[in-house]
Each structure stands twice: as structure tokens, then as C-alpha cells.
Design a protein around this nucleic acid. Structure first.
Length: 339
DNA sequence: TCCACTATCACTTTTGAAGCGC
DNA sequence: AGCGCTTCAAAAGTGATAGTGG
């Protein structure tokens, strides 16, 4: 077990506990709660003990999702994403979605579950490239039910979600053939690991800076994936026991299932990313870009032909207007638009 | 010809150093 | 000297797009 590096291997063997999760699931939540039950499953321990293990779609059904009745929408995304130093009381607004047991079942509350589900409904795509591309949405969660004085590592991993590779045909992803053999990836330990349980429970745990690549490498926090294959995120809570042994509870998060691509295939995914990712604000007003660049390169006749109406009818902005007819529900951050 | 992939572009946000006042 | 605030430029992020190559 390597303690200093962020790269490590999840131990295998009888100490691994697969999180046994209920099958209830409700959508529309802005947060998702995964909870293990008190008992571990011997039959599942062997199957889940290896990071190389392939998780079939049926395995994902063990994920439990509780609903959050308070849906905060787009405006909450940025405010919640950057705050990792909240006190326990500050996190108490999570209680509707958690089983607030100390020393009881471990509970993991995924933030932005509503956003994750929006992507999941259209088929989440994550861009991968040579240098590594960040995930968006990224994985952030709070933890409950761990031993307050126990020492824990929190580990992020990406595992296959299907034995197939996929192709985008007729506006949907369809399975074709078998997937390629997986690259060797090492689980990524949270930089703050190890910490005692009470520390983990009083903060949001974020893996914002994890990157996805299609070029094999050994840099911590960059996962090498195959394009057109389906993956999902698995979080492991590793407890350091007294006798130097480790016990692990794993949370494969079905809502994070995505297909790795080098360019977006589904226009709906692109629109969702532009709407919700702060770095993509530059694409929310395509007329501005058109005016500044391509438009200037046209001659006068072409400029006249390319009217405002024509360009708007093909723009992302137009799609947004159709989907968001009432201004207050518009996800665009108009206040930050200098023009 | 098709399509996955790459490099580059213009844009925004984030970050950190520098400057300033108290 | 130390602290807090503001400003500004560089770095790092985004999707779009044209070109490349298998």
C-alpha cells in the first residue's frame, strides 16, 4: 500500500466489502445518496475486489438513489462546487437525502445528481484527449456513517460499465462488438487522504481535477480510456484497521455512466455542457463569436445573406430559447454577460 | 468516402503575483 | 511588518472546426 502517492492499488481479498445498495431510485434530485447496508455480501466480494473487474450493467442496479425534494437548478451548481470547507452544520441541509447514522451504515451523497441525470438521460459523453480532459460534471459528494475516529482513504476509480463498444447511429448509442482490452489505470486517492472519519464527514469531497485521456501514462489523476466505450465512476472508502489491514466499501455510481469520445456526437450533450459548464460560457452566445470572426471574413453580399434570423435559427441560443420559454428558468448567466 | 482523431482557435474562468492603503 | 483588498496578466479550462490519416 503506497501512502504518499495518489496512485495506489485497491487491496483485494476478504477485507473488501461491496456496498450493498437498495434498489430505490428517484430522479429530479440535485443530490444522490448511496448507502451500504450493515452486512457485506460474501458472494459479491470476490467479484468486486479487483480494480480490473468489469462491471456489467446489471451490477449497477445495486446503486441506491434517494430523491432530494429541493431542486435548486442551474444557479446552485457553481456555488456548491467550489465550497469544500463547510462545517457539519453547514452540511445539515443534506439530511433529507441521507441516513444520518454515525457508526452505522456508510452513506455517500453525490452532489449534482440532478445534473448527472440530465446527462444520463441523453447519454453522457466525456471528451478524452492526449493531454487529459477534465470530467464534467465532476464527482463531488459528502460522506456519512464512517467511524469518526477511524482513519480513511477516499479513492476514485473508473471502471468499465459494459462489455461492448458503442457507435452513435440515428441519434443514439448502439452497442457494436466487444470492447477493447482496458488500459492499466491506478485508482486515484483523494489528495487529503488519509484523514479521520470526522474530517471526511464535515466537508464535501471533490474529484474535480480528475482527467480523462486516450494516451497511456502513469500520471496520478489521469485515467486512460478507450473511445466509444462505456465507463462509470466507483468510489471506495478504505478504512485503516488496527492490525494494518484495510477494509473497503465500494460505491459504483450508475448515474456517472458515460461514453468516452474524442468529439461530441450527441448535440443534446453539447447543449447541456455549454449550459452548465462555466468554462463554456463563450459558446452560449454564438452570434457574438460569429460577429467577431467568421462574419468578418465574408464579403458584403455574404454578410447580408447571413442574417441575424438565419444564424439564430441554427444556433444553440435558439435551441435554448425553445426549451426555456420563460426567462426566469433560463439557465444562462445573463448577469455575467458584459454585452 | 467515411470517421475517429488532432491541432488550433476564440472565448471564459481561475489563479497568483503585484500594488496599494490602513 | 503584516494584513486585507483590488487589479491584472498568465494559465487553464471549454466547445467549434478544419484538416489529417487510416
Amino acid at each position: 500500500m503506497e501512502s504518499k502517492s495518489n496512485s495506489l492499488r485497491i487491496p483485494t481479498g476478504p477485507n473488501i466489502k461491496q456496498a450493498k445498495l437498495h434498489d430505490a431510485e428517484r430522479k429530479g434530485s440535485n443530490k444522490m445518496v448511496l448507502s451500504n447496508t450493515a452486512s457485506s455480501s460474501p458472494s459479491s466480494s470476490n467479484e468486486s475486489s479487483s480494480s480490473e473487474m468489469e462491471v456489467q450493467s446489471s451490477d449497477m442496479e445495486v446503486c441506491q438513489v434517494y430523491a432530494n425534494s429541493s431542486s435548486s437548478g442551474y444557479s446552485d451548481m457553481q456555488s456548491s462546487s467550489s465550497d469544500t470547507g463547510k462545517s457539519r452544520d453547514d452540511l445539515s441541509d443534506d439530511k433529507d437525502d441521507c441516513i444520518p447514522l454515525i457508526n452505522g451504515p456508510i452513506t455517500l451523497s453525490l452532489m449534482e445528481a440532478k445534473l448527472w441525470y440530465k446527462f444520463l438521460e441523453v447519454g453522457t459523453e466525456m471528451i478524452i484527449n492526449r493531454t487529459g480532459r477534465r470530467m464534467f460534471p465532476y464527482v463531488e459528494f459528502s460522506l456519512r456513517g464512517v467511524d469518526p475516529v477511524g482513519l480513511y482513504d477516499v479513492i476514485f476509480d473508473i471502471i468499465p460499465a459494459s462489455s461492448k463498444s458503442f457507435k452513435f447511429l440515428n441519434n443514439k448509442w448502439i452497442p457494436i462488438g466487444r470492447k477493447e482490452e482496458e488500459f492499466k489505470n491506478y485508482p486515484f486517492k483523494h489528495p487529503d487522504s488519509p484523514r479521520i472519519g470526522s474530517d471526511w464527514m464535515t466537508r464535501k469531497i471533490s474529484f474535480e481535477k480528475v482527467k480523462l485521456s486516450n494516451k497511456p501514462g502513469t500520471k496520478a489523476g489521469i485515467f486512460t480510456l478507450h473511445t466509444l466505450q462505456k465507463y462509470l465512476v466507483r468510489i471506495s472508502i478504505v478504512k485503516h484497521e488496527r492490525d494494518d489491514e484495510l477494509s473497503v466499501v465500494e460505491f459504483p455510481i450508475r448515474a456517472t455512466t458515460f461514453i468516452a469520445v474524442t468529439a461530441y456526437n450527441n448535440r443534446e450533450v453539447t447543449k447541456l455542457k455549454i449550459n452548465s459548464n462555466p468554462y463554456s460560457k463563450g459558446f452560449r452566445f454564438p452570434m457574438k463569436r460569429l460577429k467577431n470572426h467568421a462574419f468578418e471574413q465574408l464579403d458584403a453580399k455574404e454578410q447580408r445573406m447571413l442574417t441575424l434570423e438565419d444564424s439564430l435559427s441554427n444556433s444553440v441560443y435558439c435551441h435554448l430559447k425553445k426549451e426555456m420559454p420563460t426567462f426566469p428558468q433560463c439557465p444562462l448567466d445573463l448577469s455575467s454577460n458584459k454585452e
